[in-house]
């Protein structure tokens, strides 16, 4: 099977994830979309690794997973504390950083 197809898939997933980040209001969903984008990147890395015949891509994919895990921990903690404070998980409600 042509590995390029995996790249198309990765691009598709990335786009879906990006659109989700931009469109959805619920912080959890936005968060999942971010994960989707990260995993799309992982897929692309692995595919490139395969195409180029070296392991760099796979190693970076592992790195990404570790970072993603850390990010999930921090991100979820923030979402939960925001939800506790404002009783809402909508990203539009948290606009305090506006000047």
């Amino acid at each position: 099977m042509n590995p390029v197809n995996y790249l198309y898939l990765a691009a598709l997933l990335f786009t879906i994830g990006a659109a989700g980040v931009l469109i959805r209001r619920n912080a959890i969903v936005v968060f999942m979309c971010v994960e989707l984008m990260l995993n799309a990147c992982n897929l692309a890395f692995v595919t490139f690794s395969r195409m180029h015949g070296n392991l760099d891509g796979q190693i970076i994919a592992f790195f990404t997973m570790v970072v993603a895990a850390a990010e999930v921990v921090v991100g979820l903690a923030i979402i939960v504390s925001v939800f506790r404070a404002r009783h809402s998980a909508s990203v539009d409600d948290a606009s305090l950083m506006k000047l």
Binding site: A18, V21, L22, I23, V30, V91, D92, A94, S95, L96, M97, K98, L99
Partner: peptide
């Protein structure tokens, strides 16, 4: 330019993309 900083995470995300 200040008006661009509206505090909505999604707007920032758009500008990043």
């Amino acid at each position: 330019l200040r008006k661009l900083q509206n505090g909505y995470a999604r707007t920032y995300a758009v500008s990043m993309f």
